[in-house]
Amino acid sequence: MLLIDTLLLVLLLWLGFKITFTKDHFNAIIHFIVFGMILALAWVRLGAFDLALAEIALGAGITGALLLDTITFLKKIGREDA
């Protein structure tokens, strides 16, 4: 169990780092969605199932969709760097 916890922790940290410092925005968003999933797993490990559900739906789902939509829009108006 400790192994899983440590793994989750390291994964979360690494993903957070990636999200912050990735140059490509699309990449960052994908990492962000994955981060949401892993975080949900961490919540499950902490016994907070409701939080885990909300995290998946809100953090990974809705926010991810919004971010993806934004980046599509930005690409469409020709400001990928934005």
């Binding site: 199932f49 409701d50 939080l51 559900l53 909300a54 739906a57 789902g61 809705i62 969709a65």
Partner: peptide, 18 residues
């Protein structure tokens, strides 16, 4: 009686709608 409730439910619902 267990973990859950309005917030999680609404998040799920919203996900479905999206």
């Amino acid at each position: 009686y267990q973990s859950g409730g309005a917030f999680s439910a609404s998040a799920l619902l919203a996900g479905g709608i999206i």
